[in-house]
């Protein structure tokens, strides 16, 4: 048995441990994940009835719907990620543990990333089914877009979830703070998805993928550095 009290702090191991803790709570309660999945599937069904298939082709409409639903289902998960730490002031215990604040942020973001990707993995086939989209190798490209967009989304979203959890409005405030920051994620993601579903090669969506990649790098670093400032000293 290893002696936990004298272990060397390790950024990646700490982050994975925190993500594992969050996902374990999520897996045992299933409250957040279930509501996000039901929300995503219900919204897909409802959007289907706001659409006239004779007027607009499904490949033109589906990407926008996919990314709108991704955003709002993701926000449900993000709100949850710091609410669980407020029960019994668990956050204080987390901060008192020998784990760097940046590792806490990375762990929270990693847990949220798994959460939004799991919702997306259920939403993508449902989208294809409900909107009669062609099924083929272009979906690998869509998956790559989803991974890049998801990384930037959770970096910014996790930081603002931490900010919002310190305010009077809490859950109400998160969309307002985070949505402007999601613009450079959602617009390129929706445009790239649209081109890929129309059968274009992945080389044609490189400008969008570059913006997504650059956003991921800049905001993962910036949000990890900014996170300690969102905590009370």
């Amino acid at each position: 048995m290893s002696n936990l009290a004298f272990r060397e702090p390790s950024f990646i191991a700490d982050a994975i441990r925190i993500a594992r803790k969050d996902l374990l709570i999520e897996f045992r309660s299933r409250s957040g994940f279930l509501s996000a999945v039901v929300f995503a599937l219900l919204s897909l069904a409802i959007f289907r009835f706001s659409w006239d298939p004779t007027a607009v082709r499904s490949t033109l409409l589906a990407p926008g719907i996919l990314w709108v639903i991704f955003t709002f289902a993701g926000l449900l998960g993000l709100n949850r990620s710091f609410n669980v730490e407020q029960v019994d002031r668990a956050m204080d215990a987390l901060l008192a543990s020998p784990v760097s604040r940046e590792a806490v942020f990375a762990g929270k973001a990693l847990g949220n990333f798994v959460f939004v990707m799991a919702v997306q993995l259920l939403a993508l086939p449902t989208l294809a089914l409900f909107f009669g989209l062609p099924v083929g190798p272009e979906w690998w490209g869509v998956l790559a877009v989803a991974l890049l967009a998801g990384a930037g989304f959770v970096a910014v979203g996790t930081l603002f979830a931490a900010v919002a959890s310190n305010t009077r409005l809490a859950e109400m405030l998160l969309p307002m703070l985070a949505l402007p920051f999601f613009v450079p994620v959602l617009i390129p993601a929706a445009q790239a998805t649209s081109s890929l579903l129309a059968g274009r090669p992945i080389s044609e969506v490189l400008p969008e993928l570059k913006i997504l990649g650059a956003f991921d790098i800049v905001f993962m670093a910036a949000c990890a550095l900014a996170f300690p400032f969102t905590l009370e000293e």
């Binding site: 910014v156 900010v163 310190n166 305010t167 402007p180 450079p184 956003f215 400032f229």
Partner: peptide
């Protein structure tokens, strides 16, 4: 403190928008 975090991140966001 929290609004300063938002202000600084906003400066990084503008070139992306």
């Amino acid at each position: 403190r929290l609004s300063a975090v938002l202000g600084v991140l906003a400066l990084l966001l503008v070139p992306f928008i």
